[in-house]
Design a protein around this nucleic acid. Structure first.
Length: 899
RNA sequence: GGGCGCGUAGCUCAGUGGGAGAGCGCUCGCUUCACACGCGAGAGGUCGCAGGUUCGAAACCCGCCGCGCCCACCA
């Protein structure tokens, strides 16, 4: 088991072995293999909780390939992991794959050209079609389908792992988990059964958000708005005669006492005074209309409220009611309630106890309905049937076009439909708008826990802090419990069965649950205790719950899964509650929220101490990186072209929570930095003169003092999860170090014979500073840093201790004085300034930098001129200056006379 | 409609009370013995607009404009 090495700061354990021409080529392969061989990132299970830094890694969805955004945010996590490891923490950093769920199913369907049909029998010899056809997919059994899902995800996961290794994520690959794996299923089902026993999970027949393509329920959190063109239709409803005198309340008797929809006089298409008009974007739902609503204080419709109206075409009596949610300024102020057009309809339906008249089937087509039967009364049953026959079997869009034609014919469409752009709710992975259908689903209670969940959000440390508001917005906006069941196949099954009574009815209210030690179970193949397999689906027998859990219902348990809750409580106790949850900000409402919920319910605890939110990668045109672009810029491509360190450098410049433009230029800059580190390390370490025990030169001492402040700044930045700031400050100081300090001390470094003491001092300073820079850069550029470290140190740099400012300062204190306080730092400042002026003069004269300078006159204050003396020898050498004349003056100036 | 974030050089961004900055790009120059995947120098900005606080504002406050994201009962 690797443990952290003793501090090797400036104490080479081997003679530096520096290559003639250092190169970045092949470092990824060389070191990722080396790290694996040495177990550098292996988690030490014996570490006590307080020494552990545990990370709840986002398991990427396995549905094809990783994209640039993944590389971006996973690099951020790795930066923190590597920093914490060097700080002496035992880092718990596993990787997981979210391979259960719809995206995987869709990919398998398209990849193999198959469809899952649970009614098909298992075929043990099944092989996928040689030429997959998306148009005519082969129907296969659920077990066959699951096998294909497992096979394809396994392939994808190998590719994912290879990418992460190339990127240099310091993951312990021996702890990889998958959300479809047996352990995850067992933990997920165990948690579900616990919630069921405690009444936190329940089943309900209710209007549910429904994706008509996937034909499954979806959750509120998985919706997104998309702008779609639509049209506003003004439609006339019919009056019921004798309203207000009580006769309207005996509605339901078809035929008598009512007028037809059309006004008795004038042109059928012209609205008359007193017409009942509504506006709708969804006229195809008129047959599902169950009421008209007006605002309670809307005087335009107050006469009508309490009475009834007749739907156009179908001549169904619907009550006219009032409700405060109606907005008088929208449309005509009168709104049609359908079962169900949108979530507001559900609200009205529930609060006003309206009946259900559902016309939409689960496939998104208008289904067969029994006109004339109870609930489907009409004053003109034949007409209703005839009109509906025109719509039956059509999709929503087709039905909409047809019913508009019918309304035109009947004269009940007023004017032309007005085009409008409206926001429509989509399942985020779906292609057509969600509909609302009534079905039986499983829910986890969320609304009842609103206040507790807000409190949990308050306990959590957010980086950046303003992300907390998004969480609170979401929790405050919760309108219903979390629907967790999906009518799909590749997921964690609900571990319950139901008894079937003698009449063949399924007893949904009395689920049969398995014994805990039997988990995970698949009720579609496993048999409940006390029943025989033949009794499946038989009267007096049993039925398995056919649904699987939403993928979030399992991935919300990643802290429990990765920590092996209930499986290995010793491990769990060493890592939970976890230290950090890194993730992107767009899944606060899903993953972050649901993880807090589950941890709260399961463990009465916050799942982690810190949430670190990363941003998105944007196109150069500021849009979220698109799929098409992502396909061109595959991550492996980028890594091959620029090198892993360079790509990491780009990612590390994206500040926490901030969206970042994709910028290949930045990767080139990162590569330059890596090359610079190679060459600067070579200069500092190759054929270095023997190092002294003391830093005798003022410039060397000044450098080390400045280095201490860089270390402090980088450390403080990392402690507040601001890796970007740590990088920027380190990088800035490093370039300065190369451009000024290294140039200034070059003479002393090479002329060890002429100035042995100076050479010994610079040798020591170079070792110290290079050691510090290599380690400061190690989280960002792990490959090149490991390479340069390997030239002169033993063991991995990634297990070396993070640089310590106090130790650097102790180095100065131990080595005697070199002038008045502050003078040494000033010496470095002034020497660099004068060197800059000399360079400028040479540049303007278009002369080489090594061109000799006959005389430099420095006009400055006595203090600065005196400080300059401390570094005079180095300055003269660096500038090829023959003579320097200090002149006391209040104004700073430098005159340069080239030879 | 509500909330959050952002607006600084051509581009990407740092800077949160006292000199307007970095990198890239651009221009000019330099084979300098760690590095031409290099080195040096230079040009380039009414810090979104308008008020206010202050001796002093890119920064703090108010309003407005623009961009992005999240949320909303979007008929």
């Amino acid at each position: 088991m690797p443990s952290q090495q003793p501090d090797t700061q400036a104490s080479p354990t081997t003679v530096p072995d520096v290559p003639e021409r250092p190169s970045l080529d092949g470092l990824e392969a060389k070191w990722s293999e080396g790290w694996e061989r040495e177990g550098v990132y292996r988690f030490d299970r014996s570490a006590p909780r307080e020494r552990v830094f545990s990370i709840d890694t986002p398991p990427p969805t396995v549905s094809g390939s990783l994209h640039v955004g993944h590389v971006f945010s996973f690099t951020h996590t790795d930066l923190i992991a590597r920093y914490q490891r060097m700080r002496g923490k035992v880092v718990f950093y596993p990787m997981g794959w979210d391979d259960n769920g719809l995206p995987t199913e869709r990919r398998v369907q398209n990849h193999y050209g198959v469809r899952c049909d649970p009614s098909v029998d298992y075929d043990p010899d099944f092989t996928p079609p040689a030429e997959p056809s998306e148009r005519e997919p082969v129907s296969i059994s659920r077990p066959n389908f699951v096998e294909l899902c497992l096979a394809l995800t396994a392939t994808d996961e190998r590719a994912f792992e290879a990418l992460w290794r190339t990127l240099g994520l310091s993951v312990d690959w021996s702890m990889t988990y998958t959300t479809i794996g047996r352990t995850a299923q067992r933990i997920s089902q165990r948690s579900f059964l616990d919630l069921l026993a405690r009444g936190e999970a329940y089943q309900l027949q209710a209007p549910t958000l429904w994706d008509i393509d996937f034909q499954t329920a979806v959750a509120q959190a998985e919706l997104e708005d998309r702008e779609r063109p639509g049209a506003m239709h003004r439609v006339r409803f019919g009056r019921v005669r004798g309203e207000g005198d009580g006769s309207a309340t005996d509605g339901g008797a078809p035929g008598g006492g009512v007028a037809t929809g059309a006004p008795s006089e004038g042109s059928a298409a012209e609205p008359g005074v007193g017409d009942i008009l509504i506006e709708t974007t969804r006229p195809e739902l008129i047959p599902a209309c169950v009421a008209l609503l007006a605002h309670p204080e809307d005087e335009r419709w107050s006469d009508l409220v309490g009475g009834e109206a007749l739907t156009p075409l179908f001549r169904t009596r619907v009550p006219v009611l009032s409700h405060p949610l109606v907005q008088p300024d929208k449309g005509t102020g009168l709104v049609m309630v359908c079962t169900f057009g949108d979530l507001t309809d559900v609200t009205w339906w529930r609060e006003l106890s309206l009946p259900v008249r559902a016309v939409l089937g689960e496939d998104g087509r208008l289904r067969e309905v029994p006109w004339g039967a109870p609930g489907w009364e009409s004053v003109d049953v034949a007409g209703a049937r005839a009109s509906y026959e025109e719509l039956r079997g059509r999709s929503v869009n087709q039905a909409r076009r047809r019913i508009v034609e019918l309304l035109v014919e009947s004269g009940e469409l007023i004017g032309e439909p007005q085009p409008v752009n409206r926001a429509v709710k989509f399942f985020e992975k779906g292609e057509r708008p969600v509909e609302i259908v009534t079905s039986r689903q499983w829910f986890f209670k969320t609304v009842a826990h609103r206040e507790e969940l807000l409190a949990r959000g308050g306990e959590l440390e957010w980086h950046p802090p303003y992300m907390r508001a998004r969480y609170e917005d979401w929790v405050n906006g919760l309108t219903g419990d979390w629907c967790v069941s999906r009518q799909r196949f590749f997921g964690v099954p609900f571990p319950v069965w139901y008894e079937i009574d003698a009449a063949g009815a399924i007893a949904h209210d009395r689920p049969l649950v398995p014994a805990p030690e039997l988990l995970p179970v698949d009720p579609s193949t496993d048999v409940p205790d006390g029943f025989a397999p033949e009794q499946r689906g038989q009267p007096g027998g049993f039925a398995g719950d056919p649904d699987v859990m939403d993928t979030w219902a399992t991935s919300s348990l990643t802290p429990q899964i990765v920590g092996m809750a209930g499986e290995d409580e010793d491990l769990f106790g060493r890592v939970f509650p976890m230290d950090m949850r890194p993730q992107a900000h767009d899944i606060i409402r899903t993953w972050l929220f649901t993880t807090i919920l589950r941890s709260h319910l399961d463990r009465d605890a916050l799942p982690w101490r810190v949430a670190a939110l990363s941003g998105w990668v944007l196109d150069p045109d500021r849009k979220k990186m698109s799929k098409s672009k992502g396909n061109v810029l595959t991550p492996m491509h980028l890594l091959e072209e620029h090198g892993a360190d360079a790509v990491r450098y780009w990612a590390a410049n994206g500040r926490p929570g901030t969206d970042t433009a994709f910028d290949a230029q930045q990767m080139k800059v990162g590569r330059r930095l890596a090359v610079k580190l190679l060459n600067a390390s070579k200069f500092a370490l190759a054929d270095l003169p023997p190092q002294g025990e003391e830093l005798t030169s003022s410039l060397d001492r000044a450098l080390i003092a400045r280095l201490a402040t860089v270390v402090e700044d980088a450390t403080a930045s990392f402690e507040s999860y601001d890796y970007a700031r740590a990088l920027q400050h380190t990088e800035e100081r490093f370039w300065w170090f190369c451009d000024y300090y290294l140039e200034l001390v070059k003479g002393r470094r090479y002329d060890s014979a002429g100035d042995p003491m100076g050479a010994a001092s610079v040798s020591r300073a170079l070792r110290l500073s290079v050691s510090v820079f290599q380690r400061l850069f190690a989280p960002f550029l792990p490959f090149v840093c490991e390479e340069v470290w390997s030239w002169w140190q033993s063991g991995s740099i990634h297990l070396a201790p993070w640089p310590d400012a106090a130790e650097l300062r102790a180095e100065l204190d131990a080595n005697g004085g070199g002038g008045p306080a502050g003078a040494e730092d000033e010496a470095l400042t002034v020497a660099a300034e004068v060197l800059g002026e000399v360079r400028k003069a040479k540049s303007e004269a278009q002369r080489p930098m090594r061109a000799p300078v006959r005389l430099v006159r420095v006009y400055d204050t006595p203090a600065r001129l005196s400080a300059l003396q401390l570094g005079l020898g180095d300055l003269l050498g660096a500038g090829a200056i023959e003579q320097l004349e200090p002149i006391e003056s209040d104004e700073h100036a430098v005159e340069v006379e080239l030879a």
